[in-house]
Structure formats: C-alpha cells, structure tokens
C-alpha cells in the first residue's frame, strides 16, 4: 500500500485488515443490521469460501442465511434473483467471475432486466460477488476480467474495488442498494492489507471516483489490481519530473466521468490501464467519451493499456506477460507525455 492510497487517517476506529476480511466484515455487519440479508454459493458455509471470504459467517448466522449450494451457478444467481424480487437481499458468491457466463441469463436477462420489463413492479436488490483477474496459474477459464459485460447490459451496477477500505465500503453500499450489483473482487488483492474504518455506517458511494494521486502531466484511469501498478509507475515518472494524476473509478456503473473529464481538462493527456482485454474493454468506452467531450482540450490521443487478445495461459510467469506490468506502464506514460 502506498501512502496515497490510505483514505482515512490511522487512529481510533480504524483497523488494518486485508481485502478479504474487509469484505467479510461488510457482509457480517450488514447481516447483523438487516435480517433479510443472506448468502448462497458453493462452499461458502462450512469451508468459508474457496478464498476464505465468508469464514465464520455460517457459525454466526446459521445454515438458513449462509447456504452451501451444489455446483450450480445458474441456480445460485437465479435463486438470488427470485429471492430479491420477493423481499430478501441475497449475496450470491460465484467462485470465479468467469462463471458469470454460466449464469448469463440470470444476471443479464433477469437481474438486469426484470424491473424494466415489468414496469417497475419488481425490485432486484441482489449482490453477485465474483472473484476476478489473475491469481497465478489458475488458467484461462478462471482468470478473466469481464467487468465490461456489466457496462454493456443496462440494469446492473458494477463495482471494482482496489483497496480493503473500498472493498468494505462499496460492498456495504451494494447490499443496501435496491438495484442488482456485480461486485468484482480481485483475487490478487485478497491478501493485501490496508486501513479500514470500523464504523458500521462506513459506506463508499457508487459513482464517485477516487483520485489516488494528484498530478498535472497526465491523467491515468486505472482499475482493480492495475491501480497499484499504475501508482508504482507514477512514482517512477515523479522521479523524472512528471507528476501523473491517477484516478480509480471504483465503480464502472455508474461511472464518474465528471472527475475524469475534470482531470483530463487540466492535464490534456489521458490513458486507461485495465487488466481486461484491451479490445472492447471498459477503456475503449472511457477513451471514446473523453474524445467526444474533450477533443479540443487534448494534447494527444487517449491511450489504452490492457490484456492482449489471447486467452490467459496457465503458467504463472506467462500469464503476467498478457497484462500490463509496471515497466510497460512506465514506458507508455513516458511515450504519451512526450507526444
């Protein structure tokens, strides 16, 4: 954790915990606050989740509110949708974000659409937690970054926290949101520690970007695990005399374009860094909007860094070659500033 990433000053009411535990605390607090909140997914109960995120919740809340399912992603999300429209607030855990596609109709056909289709007569306050991104050797079917799907299907919100505090605050907001939320937890961040407010009313709002670092040479919009790498690259540029502004949108739906546009207006240069495939990723949408809104304020075209157009190889060293790394981000920053 860099200093810039600490949002709250340390002291009373702040604990240093990892991202996974922050998510665990968010669920536990919301389940204590509201008896309608419950959890379902594979291995979420007795085991505490394949990544340990739901550890201890079965003991506290019992098997009716922490339900171990069979291997049935379609059921997990579909039952969450049916429960959401009938007055409870389910948190569905999929073991990997890739499995959203197994529950594709349930997420994009039901959660995203059923309120609209039925003239507003239904509400669907469900959260679908999906561990995303590279972990180191989990292979092509368990490593994808698919958050752009949520941007392409109107009706679902998309959160992509990059710090433990945001993970907690955004998840609590997601659970309280009357709309369905896809919550992308980066598997590579689960063990990263940070300061997290203990206050059970600590909420991070959707649609409000975090400016992780101030600068005037270039605006970089980074998401998920790329936020830390972008900040590390920005430190290198700072030593070379270029202050880079780094913005973490935190949620892609809604997307805080206001903060992004205000920054790019000042810097005249913008780049997006994400772990998802570069082609048709969220960066393409953000770049387009910047071009449309700020064409005459730009000193250079908007650049995008993302994964190459291949599946993710199984080998942990090869997989890193597929996504942006610090040296590549540094090089791109230098190149864009020099334009």
């Amino acid at each position: 954790m860099t200093e810039q990433r600490t949002q709250e000053s340390p002291g009373d009411g702040v604990s240093t915990i990892n991202y996974a535990l922050a998510i665990n605390h968010a669920m536990a607090e919301e389940m204590r606050r509201d008896s309608r909140v419950w959890i379902l997914g594979q291995d979420v109960g007795r085991m505490g989740g394949v990544f340990g995120v739901t550890r201890g919740l079965l003991d506290e809340f019992g098997p009716l509110r922490v339900r171990d399912t069979a291997i049935n992603e379609t059921f997990i999300v579909g039952a969450a949708a049916g429960a959401a429209m009938t007055g409870t607030i389910p948190i569905a855990e999929l073991q990997f974000a890739d499995f959203m596609l197994i529950a594709g109709d349930e997420i994009f056909g039901k959660l995203a659409k059923w309120r609209y289709m039925h003239g507003g007569k239904l509400s669907l306050p469900a959260v679908v937690r999906v561990p995303t991104g590279l972990l180191g050797g989990v292979g092509a079917e368990h490593s994808q970054s698919l958050e752009v799907l949520g941007m392409h299907f109107p009706g679902v919100k998309v959160a992509l926290p990059s710090t433990p505090a945001d993970a907690k605050g955004l998840l609590k907001s997601a659970i309280r949101d009357p709309n369905p939320v896809l919550f992308f937890e980066h598997k590579g961040l689960y063990r990263v520690k940070g300061e997290v407010p203990d206050d059970p009313e600590f909420l991070v709002p959707f649609g409000v970007a975090a400016v992780r670092r101030r600068g005037d040479a270039l605006t970089v919009i980074a998401t998920g695990m790329m936020v830390d790498r972008t900040l590390a690259a920005a430190d290198v540029l700072a030593r070379e005399g270029h202050e880079v502004e780094v913005i973490d949108p935190r949620t892609l739906v809604p997307l805080d374009m206001e903060t992004i546009l205000e920054s790019v207006q000042r810097t005249g240069r913008a780049m997006i860094v994400h772990e998802a495939v570069r082609t048709a990723g969220a960066g393409a949408e953000i770049a387009s909007r910047i071009h449309e809104e700020l064409f005459f304020a730009l000193d250079a075209p908007v650049w995008r860094l993302g994964a190459i157009d291949t599946p993710i190889p199984q080998d942990p060293e090869l997989e890193q070659l597929c996504i942006p790394q610090v040296p590549g981000i540094v090089e791109a920053m230098r190149g864009l500033i020099a334009l």
């Binding site: 309608r36 419950w38 039952a79 049916g82 429960a83 429209m85 409870t88």
Partner: peptide
C-alpha cells in the same frame, strides 16, 4: 428460467 427464480422466491418465503 423460472425454475431457478421460483426456488429463490420459495427461499424468501421461508426466510
């Protein structure tokens, strides 16, 4: 697709 939705409604009813 109603099979899975219906199961969720049944769970809500119980809860």
């Amino acid at each position: 697709s109603s099979f899975v939705l219906g199961a969720g409604a049944a769970i809500s009813g119980q809860m």
